[in-house]
Amino acid sequence: MTAGHAELQAELRIDRPSVADGATLWRIAKESKALDLNSSYSYLLWCRDFADTSAVARDDRGEAVGFVTGYLRPDRPDTLLVWQVAVDGAYRGRGLAGALLDGLVARIGAEQRITAVETTITPGNTASERLFASFAERHGARVENEVLFATGQFPDGPHDPEVLHRIGPLSL
């Protein structure tokens, strides 16, 4: 963990989300303007069913100000698929997304073997590309990229391709 991450850890608490966080996670995702916004219902379910593989950052009032949602792939239980990462506008630019990602991977890695992290990023989302490249560098891992879902595979109209970024092997 970098010194900046340590300072954030002291200022903010990173833990598991609860159903009570679902509405806030939906709001943060909506306000990010970068994420595909899922239904509010899906964020409530995510906080209930995938809390063990997700993380929230809480301010001194206990309010969620950032999150990472993820799950362990059923066909590769040593791989964490990161679904979404978002930080409230007031907390952006301070390394919180990286601290959340590091904290989540450390927590899961302490409970079971994790050898890789995967995520998808649309071309041009340089903030996400930097976040995951930096994560790979901190963990001494390679990044391999390939198109996971091409534009034509999306049934609901034009959508940029989703490029899979596979980071590993991790040294935890």
Score class of each variant (00 low, 15 high):
Ala141Gly: 05
Ser42Leu: 08
Gly124Asp: 00
Pro155Gln: 08
Asp49Gly: 00
Ala34Gly: 10
His139Leu: 03
Ala127Lys: 00
Val105Cys: 10
Asp160Ala: 07
Val105Phe: 02
Ala136Trp: 08
Ala55Cys: 12
Arg107Lys: 09
Glu144Lys: 05
Phe154Gly: 02
Arg166Cys: 09
Ala150Arg: 07
Gly95Lys: 14
Lys30Met: 15
Gln9Ile: 11
Ala86Tyr: 11
Gly124Met: 02
Ile167Gln: 04
Leu35Gly: 13
Arg13Thr: 03
Asp15Trp: 02
Glu129Gly: 03
Pro123Phe: 01
Val65Pro: 11
Leu45Ile: 14
Thr126Trp: 00
Ala136Cys: 07
Glu31Pro: 09
Lys30Cys: 11
Gly70Asp: 12
Ala57Val: 07
Thr79Asp: 01
Leu148His: 06
Leu148Gly: 07
Val143Ser: 10
Ile167His: 01
Gly93Val: 10
Ser18Pro: 09
Pro77Val: 03
Asp78Met: 02
Gly93Cys: 15
Glu146Tyr: 09
Ser32Val: 14
Ser39Thr: 15
Leu148Arg: 10
Leu101Trp: 01
Pro169Gln: 07
Gln84Pro: 07
Ala116Phe: 10
Tyr43Arg: 11
Phe135Leu: 14
Ala110Gly: 14
Thr69Ile: 14
Gly98Tyr: 08
Thr2Trp: 12
Glu129Phe: 00
Gln153Tyr: 02
Ala55Val: 14
Leu104Ala: 04
Ile114Arg: 05
Ser40Gln: 15
Leu44Asp: 12
Arg73Asn: 03
Gly4Ala: 15
Asp160Cys: 02
Val85Thr: 11
Asp78Tyr: 01
Ala64Cys: 12
Pro158Gln: 00
Asn38Met: 15
Thr79Arg: 02
Val143Pro: 14
Pro155Leu: 13
Ala3Arg: 15
Gly109His: 12
Val87Asn: 07
Leu96Asp: 05
Arg58Asn: 03
Arg73Asp: 05
Ile108Asn: 09
Pro169His: 10
Ser32Pro: 15
Thr120Asn: 07
Ile108Trp: 13
Asp88His: 09
Leu81Asp: 06
Tyr43Lys: 12
Asp49Val: 06
Gly124Phe: 01
Thr2Ser: 12
Arg142Ala: 15
Arg48His: 12
Glu144His: 00
Thr122Tyr: 01
Leu72Pro: 13
Gly98Arg: 12
Phe135Ile: 15
Arg16Trp: 09
Glu129Thr: 04
